[in-house]
C-alpha cells in the first residue's frame, strides 16, 4: 500500500476516534424513559422486598449496572424542590417511609396529585438509612 494511502487511513482513524472520544466524554446520563424496564412492580411490593432482604433487593432492583425499573403506586405527596424538580412519594405499607421518585421539572406531569394512581419508570438507587425510603432518580411518568 502506498504511503499516501496509509496517511489517509491514519487521518480518518484519528478523526473518527477523536469524534467518538469527544462524544463519549460529553455523553449525558440517560433518562429512565429511554431505557427498557428490567422489572415492573408496585411501590408496596418494592418497599416490602427491601425491608425483607435489603441486600437481595439491592442486587435485584439497583443491579451492578444502571437499570430502569417500573413502579406502580398511589401518590402520597408531591414535594417541589428548590432547584425546580420535584419528589413524588408513593405509598407503602409503612406510614413513615415511601418510594421517593425524583423528577426533573419538565418530566413531572403537572396534574399529578396526592391520591392519584400512577406508574413511574426510574433508576432505583437503593433503600436509605434512618428513614427507610426506597429512592428512585431520573424518573419519568409512564402513560
Amino acid at each position: 500500500m502506498q504511503r499516501r494511502t496509509w496517511i489517509a487511513i491514519i487521518i480518518v482513524a484519528i478523526i473518527f476516534g477523536g469524534g467518538y472520544a469527544w462524544k463519549e466524554y460529553n455523553r449525558v446520563p440517560t433518562g429512565a424513559a429511554s431505557m427498557d424496564a428490567a422489572f415492573s412492580t408496585t411501590a408496596e411490593a418494592l418497599h416490602a422486598d427491601f425491608l425483607a432482604d435489603e441486600a437481595a433487593a439491592t442486587a435485584k432492583y439497583v443491579g451492578a449496572k444502571e437499570q430502569a425499573i417500573r413502579v406502580e403506586g398511589v401518590i402520597r405527596a408531591v414535594e417541589q424542590a428548590d432547584g425546580g424538580g420535584a419528589t413524588v412519594i408513593l405509598e407503602t405499607a409503612d406510614a413513615m417511609a415511601g418510594v421517593l421518585c425524583e423528577f426533573a421539572s419538565d418530566a413531572l406531569p403537572k396534574d399529578w396529585k396526592s391520591g392519584d394512581q400512577v406508574t413511574v419508570q426510574g433508576i432505583c438507587t437503593g433503600m436509605n438509612d434512618l428513614i427507610p425510603d426506597v429512592i428512585m432518580v431520573r424518573c419519568a411518568a409512564v402513560e
Binding site: Y25, N26, R27, V28, P29, T30, V62, E66, I123, T125, G126, N128, D129, L130, I135, V137, R138
Partner: peptide, 12 residues
Amino acid sequence: AVLIKAFTFEKA
C-alpha cells in the same frame, strides 16, 4: 444517610 448511586453528574 447518603446513597452513593443517588449522586447525579452532568456527564455520564
